[in-house]
Design a binder for these strands. Structure first.
Lengths: 125, 125
DNA sequence: GTTTATACTTCGAAGTCCGAAGTATTGGAG
DNA sequence: CTCCAATACTTCGGACTTCGAAGTATAAAC
């Protein structure tokens, strides 16, 4: 109890100013720190409504089980919308929700930087 | 194949315009999609040189094994610098490298949004 | 009747994470 | 002299996550 930053009972209101609060973040971050989650959000954001197969192809190397788990979670969390058409062969389309778009906007700069950064690293190697 | 840059059949030059390229991103993203990685970067960015114990405390609930693995990886990847002082009891400080700062700048908006978003979700529940 | 297309499941093996306990060091208390 | 505190980690068995090859369901096309 030496400083006013330390959180005891209610760190909620200091959250926006207390950086250590970031460490406590569950929800979105927990989801984003699972495999492919960030990339999926950005892919869907870029190429609009996408079919499952297109996502799988874009990744090249994904395990379909992991990918479908990830999609399910993102739908469940409200970042993706899943539209199913009753046709044969089946068709399913994924798109960002409004919340998903907000997320994607924050993710975009990161991925753009990552692309450049990766290119740089490779050329330096 | 008029693409002279690709080492294989890689779509390197279209990378910045081809969104599916995001899916192929390894490196940084693979690292960031491990537990606590994003939060660690931002914490260190916010509260400057930090000691191991401070990070651990800020998280509250982390397994020390996972945290130290993460720190090691981030140092190894060049986002964090680790300074060790030969004192008793031992003292180690972590800080962002220049690259780490670039990364943190891209991460910051995401975390800020996550905090707000989380608060909103909680109040809606 | 077999093939084709799609969006997933299933399941055992491999990899990652957890958390309680331990390691090494030495100045200070008893 | 012995014990404890302080710090930054390891260690290890068990739990959780991801992998990837194979399978499921459907009906139109060949």
């Amino acid at each position: 109890m030496e400083n006013s930053r330390g959180s005891e009972a209610a760190p909620d209101q200091s959250c926006r100013t207390d950086p250590s609060c970031y460490c406590q973040l569950g929800g979105v971050l927990e989801l984003l720190s699972r495999k492919h989650a960030i990339q999926v959000i950005c892919l869907v954001g870029e190429i609009g409504p996408v079919r499952y197969g297109e996502i799988e192809t874009a990744f090249g190397e994904v395990s379909s089980s992991t990918l479908s788990t990830r999609l399910e979670e993102l739908v469940e969390a409200g970042y993706l919308a899943r539209e199913q058409y009753d046709e044969i062969p089946p068709r399913v389309e994924y798109d960002l929700t409004m919340t998903g778009e907000q997320l994607q906007q924050r993710l975009q700069p990161l991925l753009e930087w990552a692309v450049i950064h990766e290119e740089f690293e490779e050329s330096a190697a």
